[in-house]
């Protein structure tokens, strides 16, 4: 089994914050100009932000935004990417050629421009951020899934399954997915991190989460402006983001090792 440990704990906390956040008695939007940039103290554990709003409350609210964006973007990207990549490689021929060209075009296209353009066309807002980032995000997974499938297509057990006349779908699900899932999961863990950061980048251009809502990314962006005078504003979301990304990646690592062992035993049989 995978050891969950502290990373597991942190991620559970993240999840818990994301799910319960909207129901807690928080005041993430209460502006109190007297408290602008007041540092952490007895009344407020993490201090106040540039509008005198409690940073802790906003951190909890931001947890759910960032979770929502990361979860949906990565899920959508992985599903679409894996599906397209695997089938394209498996089917091969002209279909594959076309898919590869499309993937290439998307990869060669600067992602930030695509995201800006899409957000501009659809209007700002967190749902549109999910769509924009998914449109950019699926390509990486598709490419990886395709490469993996190509290299596995010729592995003994797949060739064997084909020659035994196994149904295609079954080959893909039974023999390909388990083997390509490991690198995809690793890619997905990195994906969570980069999605959270990309969301912040769009917020930076005003296309992400709209005020007064908060995401960790937008909090870091705002906080960086006041770094000289109120470091707590940028430290709190920065550390939260770092812990989550770190935990996701550590768990991803453990998952990979675990799958590696399993995968190898299958092949060596």
């Amino acid at each position: 089994m995978i050891r969950l440990g502290i990373p597991g704990l942190i991620l559970s906390l993240w999840f818990l914050m994301a799910v319960t956040g909207p129901f807690l008695p928080l005041h993430p939007e209460r502006i109190d100009l007297v408290n602008i940039l007041t540092g952490p103290g007895l009344n407020e554990a993490l201090g106040y932000d540039d509008l005198g709003r409690p940073v802790l409350d906003r951190l909890l609210l931001g947890a759910s935004t960032s979770f929502f964006v990361a979860f949906w973007v990565v899920t959508i990207s992985v599903v679409i990417g894996t599906f397209v990549g695997t089938f394209s490689a498996y089917i091969g021929g002209y279909v594959d050629q076309v898919v590869v060209r499309i993937i290439d075009i998307f990869l060669a296209f600067p992602g930030i421009l695509l995201a800006i353009a899409l957000s501009g066309i659809m209007g700002p807002g967190i749902e549109n951020v999910v769509v924009a980032l998914s449109i950019v995000g699926w390509v990486g997974f598709a490419r990886l899934a395709r490469a993996q499938t190509l290299s596995l297509k010729h592995r003994e057990h797949v060739v064997a399954a084909v020659s035994l006349g196994t149904v295609q779908r079954k080959i893909i699900v039974r023999h390909l997915f388990p083997l390509i899932s490991a690198p995809l999961i690793i890619e997905a863990t990195f994906g969570i991190a980069s999605v959270v950061i990309a969301e912040a980048g769009l917020s930076f251009l005003g296309l992400g989460v709209q005020p007064p809502d908060a995401s960790w990314g937008s909090m870091i962006r705002d906080g960086a402006r006041y770094m000289l005078v109120a470091p707590h504003m940028v430290l709190a979301p920065g550390i939260a983001l770092m812990l989550v990304v770190l935990s996701v990646n550590l768990l991803g690592d453990r998952l990979r090792d675990w799958m590696d062992v399993k995968g190898r035993s299958v092949v060596k049989k």
Binding site: A193, M242, V245, L246, N249, L250
Partner: peptide, 11 residues
């Protein structure tokens, strides 16, 4: 190495 990656550039 992960910590390095978890810090956004603008921070």
């Amino acid at each position: 190495s992960l910590i390095g990656m978890s810090i956004p550039n603008f921070w």
